[in-house]
Simulated assay, not measured.
Amino acid sequence: MSRRILVVTAAVLTLVAGCTSSPEAPESEPPGASLVRDASAALRDVTSVRFDLRTQGALPGFPIRSIEGVATRSGWSTGEVDMQLPTERVQYEYELGHREGASSSGGSATSAVPEGSSAEAARDTTVTLTDSDDVMTTSVVPERFTPANLLAGDGGLHDLLGDATELSTESREDIGDVPTYRVSGTLPQADISELLPGVPDDVAVKFWVTDNPERTLLRVWLQVPPRKQNEGATMIELGLSEHNQPIEVSSSAPAPSS
């Protein structure tokens, strides 16, 4: 009898020891569709953002190699742009729309970006370009690329997130020191062509969404397939930061002449 008790006791102790020494199962990652849906909803509250867009490869009708700056949903944006034209590569400082509170001569050394603006400013598609010699020219930006459209609650980035299919959470990844989830997916050709006309096929996409209740979108990566077999794919990466933070910019550049 005593031997049987010892055997049973040993078996119980072994079972308990095995249970307590097993590592805790890792917490499951949120589904990609849920992360992207939450990030899309969060974009509705974004009124200003700092951005950095870079491309690798050629895309018809999209000469931008890189552009970085700040933008507001009211339609104003300023920063620097690097473009590849048919015969040359050029760099400019740019300003799109009118910043409220600045005088016609450029305003003070720094001016805070207002939270709101008029409907007329939001529809402004004229961009002022200033080269390294302070020579100023103007051009027209397609409306689909204006801040008012890209940050709209029912267009631009919001639609890009909403159009993505086959969403899957790949892993956790830090952007700077901010923990995020990386989500992969596909953008159907018919949908992405509304933003980038001429895209020949579906586009691979990745989104980086913060690992916190805010579910803030911090990065978007696109791989546009080549139009011809002997061409390479085009990569587009957009980084977003300082969402809804007060923005101050230098405004020392001269105003364009009328």
Rank of each mutant, 00 (worst) to 15 (best):
T146N: 01
P179R: 10
V203Q: 02
L196S: 07
S77A: 15
G153F: 12
T87G: 03
V141A: 05
G162A: 11
V127A: 08
A102F: 06
T126D: 07
E173L: 13
T165W: 04
T78V: 14
G116C: 01
A121L: 06
T126H: 10
I192C: 07
D174A: 13
V140D: 08
R172C: 10
H98P: 00
H158P: 03
L167H: 09
G79Y: 02
A119M: 06
E80Y: 07
A102Q: 14
S168L: 03
V203D: 04
P197A: 08
V203R: 05
S108Y: 10
S105I: 06
D131Q: 11
T128D: 11
G106C: 09
E115R: 04
A152M: 09
T110I: 13
E143G: 08
D201R: 15
V183C: 05
G97K: 04
S117M: 01
T180F: 06
L161Y: 02
G75V: 04
E194S: 14
A119Q: 09
A119Y: 02
R99A: 11
D174C: 04
G107H: 07
Y181A: 06
G155C: 08
D163L: 09
G106H: 08
D134E: 13
Q91W: 04
S104P: 12
D133R: 14
Q189P: 01
F145E: 02
V203H: 01
T165H: 04
S118P: 02
T78Q: 10
T210P: 15
G107V: 09
